[in-house]
């Protein structure tokens, strides 16, 4: 097989997502097939919605015959963390036109993580690299959703524990982030905020609450630094 350096790099960086999305997508597909609808609708959801937690939520909403308005609000709430993903990507978006909008459409947790944490290999343009990562991740997800819904409950899950591949990927990407940033403070702060939120505030909504808390810390830190900068006549940042 002759792979271009670009495609080889895309394949190598996205492989952990394949092992995460295949079982996760299949789990969604199996749940969806219990509703009794044609498996093509599961494929369509992976194609047009493309959201892990969002699609699992959709199965529950469909099973309960929820109204469209209720569905829209629930989806907005469960995906609201993605607003902040976009917020932190704005200063490093390398694509324009439809490529940019497709990349925004495909901004799942895993794609965001790969895009922000994987160093661009030498001699490769960040634009096509990020675009292809986004597309291949969606292809993995479609494969999972479709096969799960198609095979339905015939599928035997002897793959207990394989979902650990995603936390393992996030762990690796955390270390990559640290090697890039060389500043331990945001990592400690996130650990404290994350564990604190999980233990004291909420399990189900931990991710959104912890992101909001971190965002307010970052904003206050920015404001304080900006304020002291003005008082010192614009000099003496940090």
């Amino acid at each position: 097989m002759n792979l271009s350096p670009l495609n080889a790099a895309v394949l190598r960086s996205s492989l952990p997502v394949l092992f995460g999305y295949l079982p996760l997508g299949a789990a969604f597909g199996v749940l969806f097939s219990d509703l009794g609808y044609h498996w093509l609708y599961a494929t369509a959801m992976g194609l047009f919605i493309y959201a892990g937690a969002g699609q699992f939520l959709a199965v529950g909403l469909l099973a309960n015959q929820a109204g469209l308005m209720e569905m829209a609000i629930a989806t907005l709430l469960i995906n609201s963390r993605h607003v902040f993903y976009g917020l932190s990507l704005m200063s490093r978006m390398h694509n324009r036109g439809w490529r940019k909008w497709y990349q925004i459409f495909g901004l799942t947790d895993e794609t965001y993580s790969l895009i922000t944490s994987t160093p661009i290999p030498a001699g490769i343009d960040p634009g096509p690299f990020h675009l292809r990562i986004t597309a291949i991740n969606q292809a993995y997800w479609l494969l999972g959703c479709t096969s799960g819904a198609w095979l339905g409950s015939q599928l035997e899950f002897s793959t207990d524990g394989i979902a650990f591949v995603l936390p393992a990927l996030f762990m690796v990407l955390t270390i990559e982030q640290y090697k890039h940033l060389r500043d331990i403070r945001p990592f400690i702060a996130a650990l404290v905020i994350g564990i604190g939120t999980l233990a004291l505030i909420s399990r189900e909504h931990m991710l959104l609450i912890a992101i909001l808390l971190s965002l307010s810390v970052l904003m206050m830190q920015y404001a304080a630094r900006h304020h002291s900068g003005i008082q010192a006549g614009g000099a003496g940042h940090d």
Binding site: T174, Q177, P186, F187, A190, G194, L218
Partner: peptide, 14 residues
Amino acid sequence: FLPPIVMVLLVVYS
């Protein structure tokens, strides 16, 4: 600073 924070939070969330 948000990407490293989100990465740690995704680990903790699991």
